[in-house]
């Protein structure tokens, strides 16, 4: 035991390290399926495909709620007054500065489409409520304006916009 040559030492150490390394790689690879299984499964992903919403039945001043990928989407048909209110705000004074034009699709000013989830802690805000007559979150008192921008309260960001486009003047595709 005491007279092991250093060459043998190296060979032995290499063998031990190689075995340990290969074993560690295997253990790490075994974690992949255990972690991946928690991601959305194939049927959930397929059910998250884009949806089309017909805007024709939504009257001016009305806000409807639809669901896409299990998230509530607010579609607001804004009145002239609401659009004006949204446009005349001094963007620089906002907590999350964004002009109204960046919040709607060009040429479709009346239509505000936002994900109806408060950016504070995920509650669903109430429509047409609060100080700014946009959305008001009853959980912790965040108030959004008619452009869905945060104006007051603990929420840090404006209501996010889902990916969508107009397929015709009265129809949008979300997703």
């Amino acid at each position: 035991m005491t007279t092991v040559s250093s060459a043998e030492h190296t060979r032995r150490d290499f063998l031990y390290i190689a075995t340990g390394a290969v074993g560690a790689v295997g253990a790490a690879a075994a974690l992949v399926p255990l972690i991946a299984q928690m991601n959305p499964d194939a049927s959930t992903v397929a059910a998250g495909a884009p949806i089309e919403v017909d805007l024709a039945p939504i009257a001016e001043g009305q806000i409807v709620k639809v669901f896409w990928r299990s998230k509530p989407i607010f579609i607001s048909h804004r009145s002239k007054k609401e659009i004006e209110e949204a446009q005349k705000v001094n963007v620089g004074t906002l907590p999350d500065p964004e002009p109204d034009s960046a919040r709607v699709k060009q040429g479709h000013d009346p239509w505000l489409v936002v994900i109806g989830i408060c950016t504070h802690l995920g509650c669903i805000p109430l429509a047409h409520q609060g100080e700014y007559n946009g959305f008001f979150c009853p959980c912790h008192g965040s108030a959004y304006d008619t452009s869905g921008r945060i104006r007051k309260g603990p929420a840090p960001k404006n209501l996010p916009l889902p990916p969508y486009q107009f397929v015709s003047d009265t129809k949008i595709r979300i997703g």
Binding site: Q37, D41, A42, S43
Partner: peptide
């Protein structure tokens, strides 16, 4: 995490594990 212990869904949930769940 993916199985449903109900007579109407047990078999289907096992098949969903086999078909849809990642590495199920």
């Amino acid at each position: 995490m993916h199985y449903t212990p109900h007579v109407d869904f047990a078999f289907k949930s096992v098949e969903a594990i086999m078909r849809d769940v990642n590495y199920g």
